[in-house]
Amino acid sequence: MKKLQILGTGCPKCKKLTEATEQAARELGIEFEIEKVTDIDKILEFGVMMTPALAVDGVVKVVGKVPTPQEIKGLIQ
């Protein structure tokens, strides 16, 4: 089970990143869960200084941008 965390306070790009991540995970056919981390203090615990960001199994993979679902597939695997 992959844990996919979207770090962001709820802005439009955060939502786009959530959608793109869900699409990527579905297309990969993997088991996954998505968690939206909206608390600034928790976001800072990742060392992340700008949003949106994506963490896979606790490891930050993207900061400050929204990759395509194709790019996210490469980050998840």
């Binding site: 962001g8 306070t9 709820g10 802005c11 439009p12 790009k13 955060c14 939502k15 600034i40 976001i43 800072l44 992340v48 200084m49 700008m50 949003t51 949106p52 400050g64």
Partner: peptide, 20 residues
Amino acid sequence: MADKPCCEPVAMNDCCNGAT
């Protein structure tokens, strides 16, 4: 619920027009 401001830097500042 309305969207929050987009992609506000966690490290907000006033020095450089809101740049991170």
